[in-house]
Structure formats: C-alpha cells, structure tokens
Amino acid sequence: MLATSERVELVENAEELAKMILESDVVEQYQISLYKLRHNRESQRKIKRFISVKDLYEEVQRFGKYHPDYKKIMTEVREYKREMDLDPLVADFKLAENDLQALLDDISVLIGGSVSEHIKVPTGNPFFDTGHSCSGGCSSGSCG
C-alpha cells in the first residue's frame, strides 16, 4: 500500500468530516443527554432494576411457562421496561441517539452514492438498505 497524494488527501478529508461530525449540534445533544442520564440517580436506579429483572427473564425463557416464576417475572419485565422507557432522561437519550444514528446513516449513504448508486450501505434502515421506501416492513409484503 503506497501512500500517494490522493490517499493522503482522502484521509485528510475523512478526518475533517469526522471533526465536523464531532462538532455538530447532533453530537453535542447526544453527549449532553448521555451525561445527564449517567449522572441521574433515579434514572440509573430504573435502568439497573430493569437489567436485573432482565437477567431473570433470560433464565425464565429457558424453561418457558413451566418456570415457577414465569408469570411474575414476565410482568415485572414489562413493568420495569415501561418505567425505564418513560423516564424523561432515558427518552431524551434515545431521541438523541436516533438523531445521531440518522446523521451517520445519511453520511454513509451520501458517501456510498457518490462512488456508485449500486453500493450497498448497511444503515439498519430499510429505506436506505433497499434503495426505496418500504412502508410497514418487508415482512408485511408492502415492499416495492
């Protein structure tokens, strides 16, 4: 791999793009929401409580409805997940995380598309992965 001026320029452009992303409002909002979430005792308590019952849930899943605590654990998992998801700081963090992911997906699609329209960019978003809009998901049979 020979370092040509073209490769050096590409690396410099990639570094500049990374710097622009890191300095964007989207990343700033993500970092702020992450900091708030990590430093809020009540939110952390809800998250830890959900994780502890999720571990029990995984054990119960091995035996299914025949596990003696099946109904209790299944109910607790849903309750604790709902409590965690409704926490304002968790919700803000998830929104910021989705916004950041959308930004990175858009950039990936732009870079891939500038090389060739046939390049597949794994974004995790069916709209970008298939190249056309897909309402309801591909399993619903609504893909074009």
Rank of each mutant, 00 (worst) to 15 (best):
L37D: 02
E117T: 15
Q44W: 06
S114M: 09
C134W: 06
C143T: 06
L22M: 15
H39D: 11
E117G: 15
G64Y: 06
L95F: 11
E76P: 00
Y66Q: 12
I47R: 14
T130E: 13
T4M: 02
D129K: 12
I51S: 12
P122Y: 12
G137P: 07
D85S: 08
H67G: 06
L104Y: 05
F93L: 03
E83F: 01
D92G: 05
Q31G: 03
M74C: 05
I73M: 00
S133L: 14
R62Y: 06
Q101P: 02
F127I: 11
L89A: 07
G113N: 15
G131A: 08
R62G: 04
L2P: 11
G131I: 12
Y70W: 10
D105I: 08
K65G: 00
I32S: 04
M1T: 07
A102K: 07
R82Q: 11
R78T: 05
P88I: 04
S24P: 02
A96S: 13
E9Q: 11
L17Q: 01
L2M: 13
F93T: 07
K54C: 00
E117H: 15
C143D: 08
S135K: 13
L17S: 09
M74A: 03
N40M: 03
S116D: 12
S140A: 15
S142C: 13
E42R: 13
V60Q: 04
N98H: 05
L95R: 15
G144N: 13
I21R: 00
A3Y: 07
G64P: 01
L17H: 05
P122S: 14
S5Y: 05
V8S: 11
Y30H: 06
L10P: 00
D105H: 07
